[in-house]
Simulated assay, not measured.
Amino acid sequence: MKKKQLGKSDMKISELTLGCMSLGTDQNQAERIIDTAIDAGINHLDTADLYDMGRNEEIIGKAIKEKRDQLILTTKVGNHFNKQTGDWYWDPSKEYINKAIKDSLRRLDTDYIDFYMLHGGTIEDPIEETIESFEELKKEGLIRAYGISSIRPNVIREYVKSSSIDGVMMQYSLLDRRPEEEILDLLHKNDISVLSRGPLAKGMLSNQGGAVLERKGENGYLDYRYDELKAIQQHIAELLDERQTMNGLALQYVLNHPAVATAVFGASSSEQVEENTVVDNSEALSAETIERLQTITKLNRYDKHR
């Protein structure tokens, strides 16, 4: 599997990332999913301290203990949670980040985190303080690089201007093309990688997209109505050749932009991992195919997330 440099860091991550939020809480099942991903060439795992109130990190720590040096591990911080009550609140303060990383390191059973991300953020945050915390953790060797997980253009621009982030995780797919107009080129120009989450649009751009649409798409998706989603699925199916799948085309589309280092997909079974990793990405999508895909979908725009 191809690997791409993560920002200006010395790390190269696989063009597909296993998003671990959907692993569940069965250790053996989670290990099977992770092993399937690794066997397919994936070297990047994405989690967060909030997932299952820390349990997700513990499961991953056990699963990768013997192969930690082979993997790039990402986790996130910023949601101050109470495992006993299940409550949490947003806390991007330096004090909390410095405490939270120690908890994450313990749960992951590791001495360092490869890529540490702020799990959200608003323009009202103490951004300078947050950046200072990440920079200090980097100097201490507790993290190798850092970034943010955000779809807010004003927050992203502030971190581009004021920090040395190496990556931004954001929602990006054929059905959510909001980053294309004002974010992707900005990040590429500044050597900041995009980690594209939701590339299959909640499964509506997967091989089971028709069934998913019937279950989840009655009220539409972003600014798409149900009937529009159904028509798009039909149009995409007509574009597929004998080597392509719906999953593959959707993943290839987001990976086409030079700013995108990896597409992050979730999986709750080994079969779902296999479905996404059998894709042949050796040949990029043609300009004609990309133009056609952009013609049948919308160039959405950010409105609420400012």
Rank of each mutant, 00 (worst) to 15 (best):
D185R: 09
D52T: 15
E124C: 08
D91H: 08
I131D: 04
I101F: 00
I97F: 00
I123V: 10
G61I: 02
D166I: 03
K83A: 15
I60N: 05
D125G: 03
I148E: 04
D111Q: 11
I64R: 04
V77F: 12
H188Y: 15
I64V: 13
K102M: 13
I143W: 02
D87F: 13
K139V: 10
W88M: 15
T130K: 01
E180P: 12
F134T: 09
K138E: 12
I143N: 06
K139L: 15
T75Q: 05
S149L: 08
G121R: 01
Y172K: 08
P92V: 01
K67Q: 11
G167F: 03
D166C: 13
E158W: 13
R107V: 09
A145I: 06
Y51F: 08
K67G: 06
G147W: 00
L142P: 05
K99E: 15
W90A: 13
V160A: 02
Y146W: 07
D69V: 00
I151S: 15
K99M: 13
P126V: 01
R152S: 15
E181L: 12
G54K: 10
F134S: 09
G86F: 02
I60D: 02
A100D: 02
T122S: 13
K102I: 12
D185I: 04
E135Q: 13
K189H: 09
I151N: 15
G86S: 03
Y96W: 06
T75R: 07
V168H: 09
E180Q: 02
I97N: 06
M169K: 08
S162V: 04
I113Y: 09
I165P: 01
R106F: 14
E128S: 05
R55S: 14
I183E: 05
E136V: 01
I148M: 02
T74F: 10
L186I: 13
I151Y: 15
I72L: 08
K83G: 04
T74Y: 11
I165F: 04
I131S: 00
R152W: 11
G86I: 03
K67T: 06
P126C: 03
G86E: 03
E95Q: 15
R178P: 10
E180G: 06
S149H: 06
N98V: 07
D176A: 10
I60R: 01
E182T: 14
Y159D: 04
K99W: 04
K139R: 15
V77S: 10
M170C: 10
R144N: 12
G167P: 02
I165T: 00
I131G: 01
V77M: 02
E57P: 01
L175A: 10
F81P: 01
D69M: 05
E95C: 11
Q70L: 07
P179A: 06
